[in-house]
Measured scan of single mutants.
Amino acid sequence: MAAAAAAGAGPEMVRGQVFDVGPRYTNLSYIGEGAYGMVCSAYDNVNKVRVAIKKISPFEHQTYCQRTLREIKILLRFRHENIIGINDIIRAPTIEQMKDVYIVQDLMETDLYKLLKTQHLSNDHICYFLYQILRGLKYIHSANVLHRDLKPSNLLLNTTCDLKICDFGLARVADPDHDHTGFLTEYVATRWYRAPEIMLNSKGYTKSIDIWSVGCILAEMLSNRPIFPGKHYLDQLNHILGILGSPSQEDLNCIINLKARNYLLSLPHKNKVPWNRLFPNADSKALDLLDKMLTFNPHKRIEVEQALAHPYLEQYYDPSDEPIAEAPFKFDMELDDLPKEKLKELIFEETARFQPGYRS
């Protein structure tokens, strides 16, 4: 834990890192770190609560700039109880001085990944967590956004079992017609939660990839272990087919990539493993919904509104309290091709509203 900075004593240090967030945020305490930044909790002297502050230093890398800009653009436009918001952003007053960006968010005690390492969940908890994931996802999908990296560590939890989806750095506007060349190379989302079509096709992607990830998360809540822990690309596919069985001819016809289709045709026939054999203690309604989410063919996979209306979630289902976005989200430009200098300018502009004396 960093010592509390005395008023006016300059930035606090946390594990050798400068955290320049005073005077409003003090009493910093280390939480963890990701690929390009550290997260601390801090005391907000204005709202009198502890908050989470993520320090991001992305400006050396085009990919990190892209992810940072995506996350900020999306989260500043989203407003939903099951999606983490941005409360404040701290950065230098000029673009030349801006080396880091500090993002202030609600402090959540833990995440689903940490929880599943230590606790076996009751059916009631599984049901409530799944409902909140789908409630947040309904809003995301209504904005025409794909999260693309749903996994237990991106689901934040607090002691009252509130759940918030975080990390929109890989999110995209849904565009089933656009052929994202190089899709697989830039697709760094965790393999275990990846839909089979991501490994088999490169053309376009749809909201059904997020539903697949939610199915993987439900299976993990039922058993405290990942359902498809593939060691590499082909191993991942083999794990999936080992449980779902061989795809039907109709399902194979959806695979545009001939090499991928021929690979699947070359494999020995596998039978589907019954879900109640894998999860003998699970609620039968939970397994019915799991089956509809972990469907090989993305066109037959359940959609988020149908999933919310499934009998497993009937005690929570309330369409009048499951809000959607006001308007579909649009990125003005494809960020993939922009140089990091341009992305830095866009991050600077996007964060201006939090600067003292800002006038829109």
Rank of each mutant, 00 (worst) to 15 (best):
F78I: 15
E326D: 15
N257T: 14
A42M: 03
T206I: 11
V46P: 02
E81W: 06
P247L: 10
M333H: 10
I243V: 06
I84V: 05
N45G: 09
Q17T: 07
V214H: 12
S320T: 13
L237Q: 14
D124C: 04
F331Y: 15
F329K: 04
A35C: 02
P274S: 12
Y312D: 07
K48Q: 10
N257L: 09
G169E: 04
I103K: 07
I89D: 01
A9Q: 13
R24W: 00
E197I: 09
R15N: 09
D336R: 09
G22F: 11
Y113C: 10
A52N: 01
K114H: 12
K340T: 03
Y312P: 04
L170Q: 14
L150I: 07
F228Q: 02
T181A: 12
D283K: 00
A6V: 11
E345T: 01
N154C: 06
G8S: 11
D179Y: 15
L157N: 13
G230V: 14
V101Q: 07
N253D: 00
K164Q: 11
P152A: 06
K292S: 08
F129T: 04
I86T: 00
A7Y: 06
Y113F: 14
I256L: 12
I53W: 02
R172M: 07
I133Y: 04
V145S: 03
K99V: 00
E345C: 02
R24Y: 04
G215F: 08
N238M: 09
G204V: 15
N144R: 12
L200Q: 14
R79I: 15
C216Q: 12
N238A: 07
N271H: 12
V145P: 03
L264N: 02
L75I: 01
D100K: 02
E96K: 14
L335Y: 11
K272H: 02
Y113D: 07
I165V: 12
N158S: 15
D111T: 04
Q236F: 08
L290Y: 10
G230H: 00
L115S: 00
G204E: 14
K292W: 03
V101E: 15
T118I: 09
E186G: 07
W192T: 13
A9E: 05
G16L: 11
V46E: 07
N271W: 07
A174R: 09
N281T: 15
K73S: 13
L234P: 10
I72H: 01
S57T: 13
L343A: 13
E345M: 07
G16S: 05
L69N: 03
L137W: 01
L265Y: 06
L241K: 06
N253K: 13
V101T: 12
H147W: 08
A7S: 13
K285S: 04
L184S: 13
M199V: 01
N257D: 09
W212Y: 12
V273A: 05
N158E: 13
V21W: 07
T159H: 10
E250N: 00
L28Q: 15
A35I: 08
L112T: 03
F78V: 13
W192E: 12
I217M: 08
D337C: 01
H178Q: 14
F348S: 12
A260L: 02
L112I: 05
M221D: 09
M199E: 03
Y30L: 09
V173M: 12
L107A: 08
A5G: 07
I90H: 01
A171G: 06
H141I: 04
H178E: 11
L146I: 02
L112D: 05
L116G: 09
N224Q: 12
E349K: 14
R50T: 01
C65N: 02
G32W: 01
D100H: 03
A195M: 01
P311H: 15
I95K: 07
N224G: 10
A52H: 00
E322I: 01
F279L: 15
I83K: 00
I86N: 13
Q119G: 11
G357P: 01
M108D: 09
G8N: 06
L156K: 07
L313V: 01
I302E: 08
V14T: 02
I72L: 12
L308A: 01
A325T: 14
I56T: 04
I56A: 11
K54E: 07
I74M: 04
Y139S: 11
S246N: 07
K344E: 13
Q97G: 07
D175T: 03
I165R: 05
H180A: 07
Y312S: 04
N238I: 15
E197H: 07
E349Y: 00
G136T: 01
F59E: 06
D162V: 12
Y187K: 04
K151F: 10
I256A: 09
S153Y: 09
P339K: 13
P356F: 00
E220C: 08
P152K: 08
L335Q: 15
F354I: 14
K48S: 07
E109V: 13
L308I: 04
H180V: 13
T63Q: 06
E109S: 03
D288H: 03
Q306W: 01
A2C: 00
G357S: 10
A189K: 09
R301K: 14
N253R: 11
I53G: 01
F19H: 14
Y25L: 12
P11Q: 15
V21I: 14
L28K: 03
A189N: 09
V18Q: 11
N238C: 11
F168Y: 14
A282H: 01
N45Y: 14
N45L: 09
T68V: 04
I140S: 11
P176D: 08
P58F: 00
H232N: 11
T63E: 12
K272P: 01
L222E: 10
A327E: 07
K340A: 11
G136C: 04
T295C: 06
F348D: 11
P356C: 00
S57L: 05
Q132H: 15
Y358P: 09
E305G: 03
V21R: 03
K99Y: 04
V173R: 09
L267S: 05
G169S: 11
I255F: 14
I133F: 14
Q249M: 06
M98L: 14
E303G: 09
L265F: 06
L244D: 04
H299N: 15
R70I: 02
G204N: 07
L137Q: 15
E33I: 00
A4P: 00
G204P: 11
E33W: 00
A92T: 12
Y30E: 01
S142M: 08
S41C: 12
D177H: 09
W275S: 10
D167G: 06
M38N: 09
L244K: 03
E305M: 03
I31A: 01
V188M: 10
P226K: 00
D291A: 08
R277L: 12
A6D: 11
M199R: 03
Y263K: 09
L267Y: 04
R277G: 10
P176Q: 15
F19Q: 13
G242C: 15
L258R: 04
S202K: 09
P280M: 14
Q105D: 11
R194H: 10
L278N: 07
L200K: 10
N144G: 05
Y233L: 13
D288Y: 15
L278P: 02
L234T: 11
L107M: 13
N201C: 05
A9K: 04
F228V: 04
L76A: 01
N224W: 10
G8Q: 13
P274M: 12
L130Y: 03
T68G: 03
E341Q: 04
V104P: 04
I324D: 03
C65Y: 13
L289F: 04
K48G: 14
P274L: 11
C40Y: 06
N281A: 02
A4T: 11
R353I: 15
A327T: 08
C65L: 10
I90D: 02
L130P: 13
L170I: 01
N144D: 08
H80N: 10
A171F: 04
L308N: 02
A352V: 14
D20E: 15
I74N: 15
D175N: 13
T63W: 13
F331Q: 02
D210E: 13
K231I: 01
C216W: 02
R67Y: 08
R301I: 15
D283N: 14
N238Q: 12
K330N: 11
T68W: 01
D321M: 08
A174D: 05
K270H: 03
E33S: 00
T190C: 04
R301N: 03
E250K: 10
L76T: 00
K231E: 04
I86A: 00
N262R: 08
I74F: 15
S208E: 06
E314G: 01
P11A: 13
V104G: 08
T110E: 13
R191T: 08
T181M: 07
K272G: 08
E305C: 02
M13C: 08
P339Y: 10
N276T: 05
D124Y: 14
T181E: 11
F59W: 08
A52E: 08
Q105I: 05
L308M: 14
S248Q: 07
F329E: 05
F354A: 07
Q249E: 07
N45S: 07
V145M: 12
L265R: 03
E81M: 09
P268Y: 04
P196E: 13
R359G: 15
P247F: 01
L150V: 03
G8H: 09
A325H: 00
V273S: 02
L294N: 06
H178P: 11
R50V: 09
L313G: 10
L289Y: 10
